[in-house]
Design a protein around this nucleic acid. Structure first.
Lengths: 337, 337
DNA sequence: CTGAAAGCGCTTACAG
DNA sequence: CTGAAAGCGCTTACAG
């Protein structure tokens, strides 16, 4: 059916060992022989069978990426798509493909884990820190399987890449304070996530430092509809609020809509800023001021660390934390009085 | 290192053929033997090596998805992420994984093609119709390789899934006309894409049917910044325009921003509608009225067709076209006078 | 119902 | 520099 190494060997009148050596650029093949075989490979459009190579070398030339996937969360943010793109670019450069796994539930994670890892379909793994449970992470570690986490784990100590969640939230809060805001609400994602806690910490730190009450922190699922209702509640209970700091695009949407429905004008009546930037933000009216995460660099670094680990080398540091930056747009204004 | 079928066979005191049969649920194994082996597999947490299975069966249990990936385009739309999710869900249900390939250029497409196909890393392929050139599509067809296209191809006749681009654009245009609009601008994506031409056709058809001038069609790259400039130009040259029909979220952003910068209020001074819905639309102020594409169903159907093809069965129809629906929000109003 | 054996398409010491 | 052979971990006729 399909052309194999044997065909090439036969036609070239050499052993398949020799063909194999030229495929892999291994030494020990005469220059003329090499050229002849190379030409043949090109002419016959031969590509080695990945399964056979995988079986012989124990490498799949795939890396696995497991991303969380409640559609509501990952889709209103551009975080994961961007990350995926960045990782893929690095992977392709090295002849690797990405084996994707979108996990919606515990079961999914487990089946992804089994399928991908135990079946040796991938040589390494990039994974959201909160995706795997203790057992699975420990097993990865124990087996010395190459992986890097997006975000730090509270369970294990391992290689990860992350954004400066605390610093980003702190800076943005300071920005708000410098604009003259005193009654700031922090609308955060689910409390269980370590990165959410970091952001909360950053917010509180800045508020406290400025002598302001740091306790207007609310947690909310990543669901814009729920965020909308929650925002309304908050606004009704705290009419003195002049600024909202929403810690994810999905939440921003909720606040935006709540303000609209309650007749608040942003930024005249209420300022709104976001953690995590989004391609839409610059085009909204008003443009949304946001903490921008260097997602592209994050993905690249994660991939590079992984390739290092796969080569049995050790990355320099166990955690690489990227600074964020504030993108000032129009959604934040000094409060009225 | 890792546990293999031989280990299981030895421990269970059977041949590896028998173990293989129970792994694959094949007939011809005594019930007691089967149970014993099953238990052992579970206990030892054994998972067959995918490469070895692949080599023996010539199946990789991966399907390839090649998506276009100019970051600007695919990221401001949620089309591809949603599609990917839908496809992945179907794939996982059948024990398949998705091998991802994001192609940014011709070279990428070619390398994706070689890597994935010729290396037999995937058993089937889902691919944007415009991704591959004539040569590659013809080769796929010739080799009888299972694949389905997202969108119809002008080059070859093959299985595809698509949205009713013509009908969707037509309906939305009719909606605009019914609202009282006469001077409607259609801002479309690059002319080269067949689906763009379909949308243009739908627009023109509706305009013509209503006795309106169908020639305010402009093409624009999927880049919000360019779309913004283009929109300003159009608006300046055609101040009588009362409605914009932007045929992609990236373009909508451009129009939105152009209107803002020129002091137009949407929808009071200018109505704006979109082809392709977006999670953000419902939360903008005003909410953007849009042609919604059933992306989830599209992805599911594509996957199902592919699995049929992979089983050497033929899907019922060569093209499945899904109807769109209009989601009415607040960005469209009757024109002033 | 079960085992022995060939084969899938590669790679890689080992000889020469 | 090159070939012959063993081996990677499975599946699948073929016998019995």
């Amino acid at each position: 059916m399909s052309i194999t190494i044997n065909d090439i060997a036969k036609i070239a009148n050499v052993s398949k060992g020799t063909v194999s050596r030229v495929i892999n650029g291994a030494p020990g093949v005469g220059d003329k022989t090499r050229q002849r075989i190379l030409k043949l490979i090109k002419e016959l459009d031969y590509e080695p069978n990945a399964s056979a190579q995988g079986l012989a070398t124990k490498r799949s030339y795939n890396i696995g990426v497991i991303i969380p996937h409640t559609s509501k969360f990952s889709m209103s943010s551009s975080y994961w798509p961007f990350l995926l793109t960045a990782i893929n670019e690095q992977a392709v450069d090295r002849g690797y493909n990405i084996l994707l796994s979108t996990a919606q539930s515990e079961d999914d994670v487990d089946s992804a884990y089994r399928l991908i890892l135990k079946g040796r379909r991938v040589d390494g793994l990039i994974i959201g820190a909160e995706q795997f449970g203790e057992k699975q992470l420990a097993e990865l570690l124990l087996k010395d399987f190459p992986f890097v986490m997006i975000g730090n784990s509270s369970i294990i100590s391992h290689y990860y890449v992350e954004v400066d969640n605390l610093g980003g939230a702190e800076q943005m809060t300071e920005y708000l304070i410098n604009q003259g805001h005193k009654n700031i609400v922090f609308l955060a994602g689910p409390k269980v996530y370590p990165y959410v806690q970091e952001r909360v910490k950053g917010f509180k730190q800045a508020m406290t430092k400025a002598g302001l009450a740091p306790d207007h922190v609310f947690h909310c699922e990543y669901d814009s509809l729920i965020a909308k209702d929650k925002s309304k509640e908050i606004l009704q209970a705290n009419p003195q609020t002049t600024a909202f700091f929403a810690a994810a695009p999905g939440l921003v949407l909720g606040v935006l809509r709540a303000a609209y429905e309650m007749g608040y004008n942003i930024p005249d009546d209420l300022s709104l800023v976001s953690f995590d930037d989004h391609p839409f933000y610059g085009y909204l009216s008003p443009g949304i001021t946001a903490v921008n995460q260097p997602i592209d660099e994050l993905g690249k670094e994660a991939a590079n660390q992984l390739f290092l680990l796969m080569d049995r080398k050790l990355p320099k540091e166990k955690g690489v934390i990227f600074p964020t930056k504030i993108i000032v747009r129009e959604s934040c204004k000094a409060p009225k009085n």
